[in-house]
Design a protein around this nucleic acid. Sequence first.
DNA 1: AACTACATTATAATAATTCTAAACTATTGA
DNA 2: TCAATAGTTTAGAATTATTATAATGTAGTT
Lengths: 142, 142
Amino acid sequence: MPKKCNFIEKLREAGLRPTKQRLNMCEVLFNREKTFHFTINDLVKMISEKMNQKISLATVYNTVHAFEKKGYLKEISIDSHKSYFDTNTSVHHHFFDEETNELIDCDENDIDPVNIKKNITGKKINSVEVLIKVASDNQNQK
Amino acid sequence: MPKKCNFIEKLREAGLRPTKQRLNMCEVLFNREKTFHFTINDLVKMISEKMNQKISLATVYNTVHAFEKKGYLKEISIDSHKSYFDTNTSVHHHFFDEETNELIDCDENDIDPVNIKKNITGKKINSVEVLIKVASDNQNQK
DNA sequence: AACTACATTATAATAATTCTAAACTATTGA
DNA sequence: TCAATAGTTTAGAATTATTATAATGTAGTT
């Protein structure tokens, strides 16, 4: 688990000034065992609760976008109304539970690599993302 | 290519009343050789141009959502700011050109089926979608 | 310490989408 | 055929999510 000083480094390396607000956000986002998914709304709540300190909504948007640009966060878009960010920025896929609105990481071992046989001419592939939408299986209860 | 009467049937079968507006939208969306992708904005423009007739924005939203619910359209979400609809509702994947903002169907032969080895317990898979983000390959020019 | 560039903030502005309630229209059945 | 009714369309208001603005504040540099 990284300490505060590591976040200062982390921000500096990305060319971002280590401000109070950014360090608070780093604490909330990265000072934990497991990576997780959140919406901007979730995050604003988490910051004000955990840090017990006010933060401007604009700052949260700015900082999330700065972090995304620097590769500290990844956006996962489900549909036009559901957009999440992921603190796990490695290449991995997702399950999305359409009933609970829960986004769940897909373990690398649970899915075979996606094999693209033919790409578009003159283009390079930047990313390949699989989204598996699931819901409860009620066949048994019927 | 379906004729107007087919659209009346199509709508009725889905439990939607064949109104003038919905038939116009069917013309614009489904009376063509190839399936295509559009945003709500695109569609509003297309209707007013092609049909030479005014349509309320609210109606376009309502109708697109009704069509989506009935399986006539599928939403493809790229990120929180880019949401497309697809008149091709079959299971297929997409390329997204990050430079031109163009969404391109991935031919079935160009990608191997995605093999999910382990699903979440108690859940059934509703859909599996792959999104391949591409950009121009400038390595040669460098 | 003072300067400069960048950040934060509250608020305003914008954009996308949904709601509302009145007017309209397709369907049903007398 | 015509009235009843249930669903639909509409303009505009309301809502929500996000971004812009401009004043104030802060980090890094000299």
